[in-house]
Design a protein around this nucleic acid. Sequence first.
DNA 1: CACCAGTGCTCGG
DNA 2: CCGAGCACTGGTG
Length: 174
Amino acid sequence: MRDRFFHRSDRSQIYTPFMESSSNEPVIILSGGGDFFMKDLPGNISVRVENGKVVEIKLGSDESNCPPKVKKELEEYFSGKRKEFSFPVEIRGTSFQKKVWEEVRKIPYGETRTYREIAEKLNTSPRAVGQALAKNPLPLYIPCHRVVSKRGLGGFSAGLEWKRFLIDLERGSR
DNA sequence: CACCAGTGCTCGG
DNA sequence: CCGAGCACTGGTG
């Protein structure tokens, strides 16, 4: 059986069975494309898989073809039926970034914390937390949209529209 | 050393 | 109450 996965540089087909790849080749799996997900998402999404694990989720990317397991979980999440993900991931970052991301993963669905609150738990500064979150390779899975500034929303790499959307989604007002 | 997805403070509307 | 300016912050390349 052949699936269609893509190199970042070269979008020609490469075959790698999802979750079973033995090669070390970086593989890109893309999703989105119009009605692939719910119609009112702020944008499409792409997912990158290497050696059977999701290593990058990109909001606002407009390509196509996502592994079925991941697609299913994302669609459930976006329709409000799923609160956590079970697909395999590999989290890549510095040790500090991993600490921040781990802490952020503890924030319950539908709740938010401030950058300062996260910083205090880790004995660091809000600024450093923001900087680590800006590098989050797995938005949604590492729910950085649940971290807001003390006054307003704070920032979001994929755009504040996404951040608002995700917070509203989890609040159930959607 | 110069960036930053932050925060608290101080002014002036 | 709001916004602009400013100092301070701590990890990163």
